[in-house]
């Protein structure tokens, strides 16, 4: 018997006790919060472990589950060696490459794609929501159908095209094909539907141009959806692996997930290094998520719950 087992048994005994005393409501409340808390502990444990692991030496990485008790702290259990090793320049065919270059690549790729997607998708979504034009139904049908096609199917021919366009091994070759997405257009279409027609008509009567209506009237109104989509898009591209892994070849052009996957082999015997890289790669999405959390949950579920 260890402490953890005793704790779990005690929690279970408390639940049974409440049931036996006839306090059904209290028992179910107790069970609910216990289960939720245990679930949260399980979810958070790997993060906590990672946070401790990045400061530990290779020799003690697995010695303590998290950090050792305070009196055992030493140079070995709390140092920045993993960071030093990670940020060291590494030789490649084109000269030394530094970790911050991968961070920069990932940032450029994810940011450019997100900004362009927000612009093009909102423009398209607004057009679909608020205009009547020839071919609209056919286009909507085509878009719905195209969402059924898994993107991996297109990767091989797309790779061939990118090679033919001489865009292979550059971030442009990743950004340009990903500038617009059907999913984003549908999200913005949904959001633009709720903009009152009267407001658009009034702006038109006042002499506002069509692009001006989009920019100055519609966009501010669909801001929550834009925020949600911003996060969805940034997360997707920041963490993207399949396409970058195929399209990028030179060491100094790689993005974070691709490099970290390579480091799995390179630092097989010094796991602290790629774990540190992994921990650092988690920070930007987390910051963005905390900034946009409220809009994000609403945006993520609006399509499914309404539809």
């Amino acid at each position: 018997m260890n402490l953890l087992q005793i704790l779990l048994l005690a929690l279970f005994a408390a639940f049974v006790g409440l049931r036996l005393l006839g306090r059904r409501r209290a028992a179910s409340r107790f069970a609910r919060w216990t289960l939720l808390t245990l679930g949260a502990v399980v979810v958070l444990a790997p993060f906590t472990w990672l946070l401790a692991a990045v400061f530990k030496d290779r020799s003690v990485l697995n010695e303590f589950i998290f950090l050792p008790p305070v009196e055992q702290w030493s140079e070995k259990t709390l140092n920045l060696n993993n960071f030093r090793e990670l940020f060291k320049g590494r030789p490649s065919l084109t000269g030394p490459v530094y970790f911050w270059e991968y961070v920069l690549n990932s940032t450029v790729y994810a940011t450019c794609t997100t900004v362009l997607q927000i612009f093009f998708c909102s423009l398209g979504g607004y057009a679909l929501a608020k205009y009547e034009f020839r071919g609209k139904n056919a286009l909507t049908l085509f878009m719905l159908g195209s969402m059924m096609i898994p993107s991996v199917l297109l990767l091989a021919p797309l790779y061939k095209m990118v090679v033919d366009l001489r865009l292979v091994d550059s971030l442009a070759g990743l950004i340009i094909p990903g500038m617009v997405g059907t999913y984003g257009i549908f999200l913005f279409r949904q959001a633009c539907m709720s903009v009152p027609n009267e407001m658009i008509d009034a702006a038109r009567l006042d002499g506002c141009g069509e692009f001006g209506i989009y920019l100055r009237l519609v966009m501010p109104l669909v801001r929550p959806m834009a925020a949600a989509f911003c996060l969805i898009c940034f997360l997707g591209n920041w963490n993207a692996f399949f396409a970058p892994n195929v399209f990028l070849h030179s060491q100094d052009k790689l993005t974070l997930p691709v490099v970290l996957n390579l480091y799995l082999g390179e630092f097989r015997h010094d796991q602290g290094v790629f774990l540190t890289g992994t921990a650092l790669a988690m920070i930007p999405p987390a910051v963005l998520f905390f900034a946009l959390q409220r809009e994000f949950i609403a945006g993520l579920t609006s399509g499914a719950v309404k539809g």
Partner: peptide
């Protein structure tokens, strides 16, 4: 205007979805 607003989607989708789709 609607055609203009949708033109980025139409151009990019033709180039990077329809053509690879046929090629696939």
């Amino acid at each position: 205007a609607p055609y203009l607003f949708l033109s980025p989607y139409l151009v990019l989708t033709t180039a990077f979805f329809a053509v690879p789709f046929v090629n696939a």
